[in-house]
Design a protein around this nucleic acid. Sequence first.
DNA 1: AAAAATTAAATTGTACACAATTAAATTTGA
DNA 2: TCAAATTTAATTGTGTACAATTTAATTTTT
Lengths: 155, 155
Amino acid sequence: MLFAMSSPITPTLLLDEQLCFALYAASRRMTAVYRPLLEALELTYPQYLVMLVLWERDGLTVRELGVRLQLDSGTLTPLLKRLEQSGLVQRRRRQSDEREVEITLTEAGRKLHERAAEVPRCLAERLCMSVDAFVRLRDELKSLAAQLAAPSDDD
Amino acid sequence: MLFAMSSPITPTLLLDEQLCFALYAASRRMTAVYRPLLEALELTYPQYLVMLVLWERDGLTVRELGVRLQLDSGTLTPLLKRLEQSGLVQRRRRQSDEREVEITLTEAGRKLHERAAEVPRCLAERLCMSVDAFVRLRDELKSLAAQLAAPSDDD
DNA sequence: AAAAATTAAATTGTACACAATTAAATTTGA
DNA sequence: TCAAATTTAATTGTGTACAATTTAATTTTT
C-alpha cells in the first residue's frame, strides 16, 4: 500500500483537488473579510488597492496604476471616476502628454491614510497566522502569479 | 543588524507586503490562464466550476451548488440560465419541494466531460510545479479560506 | 387549521473584470 | 514633413459577485 496515500499524479476534474478553486475561494473569502472594514472607509476592495498604491506614490497615471495592479483602463476608468466622485482623488490630463491622465490624491484622500492604518492590523489579528507562514504563503502566491504571467510555451 | 532582514511585525499599508493583493492577483492570473482553454469548450471560468460539481454529482439544487462553490443565487441563477441556453444543463422545479430548482446535465453536458479532461492536464504542464508544492499550496489556501470563513471574535 | 416564521430562488441594483473597439495624442520612419 | 504606426484612455458589451429585497412554497407554532 505504498502509494495509497500519495497525491494523484494524473490531474483530475475533481473540484476539491483543484488549486484554481482553492485560489478562487480563498480570494473571495479574503475580500469578504475586508468588506466590513472597508465599509467604514466607504471603499470597495479594488478601490482600497488603488488607494494603497497612491498612498505609496501619488500622481501616477492610469497606465502606471494598471501596471501596478494588473488592471486595464476598462476596469480603472470607472473605478477612478467613482473615487473622484467620493472626493478622494483628482483626474487630470497631463500637459506634457495629453494622452495620459494623472491621478492625484485630494486632501481627503491623503487624510484617509491614517484611518486605513487600522485595516491591516485588524486583518493580522483575524488571520491568526505566524509572520513566517504569512510571508511564505504570500511569496508562494507571488511566484505562482509570476509563473502564470510568463508566456506559455506555445506563444 | 540582527533584525534588519526580518519580516515586519507591524502590519503596513504597502501593496507588496499584502497577502490580500498576492491572493487577488494570483487568482485573476489563474483565470486568465484558464480562459483560452475554456474558450475551446465555450465556458467561462465560473461556468466551468459549476460543470465540475455537476460532473461529480448530477441533479443538485441551486442551493447545493451554492454551498459547494460558496456562491449565492444572485450569481448562480443567471449563470445557470446561460448554461441552459448553451444546452448543457436543464433547470426544473422539484415536485417534492417546489421551492427548489434541480440542475441536471443534458447529454451535451455529460459529453463535454471528456473534452474537459484536457484542461487540468494543460494546466499542470503550464504550472511547472512539483506535485508536493502543488498540494501544499492548495491545502494552505484551503485552510486560509476556512480560517477566513470562521466567525470573527466580535460576532 | 390558520397565522407566523422559515426557506429557496429570483430579482434589482451596484461594482468590478476584461475583451474588443474607438478616439485622440504622440512618435516613428520613408 | 507628413503619413503610418504606436500609445493612452475611454467606451461598449458580456459575465460575474454580492447585498438587499421580493415572491412563492413549506414548516412551525399557537
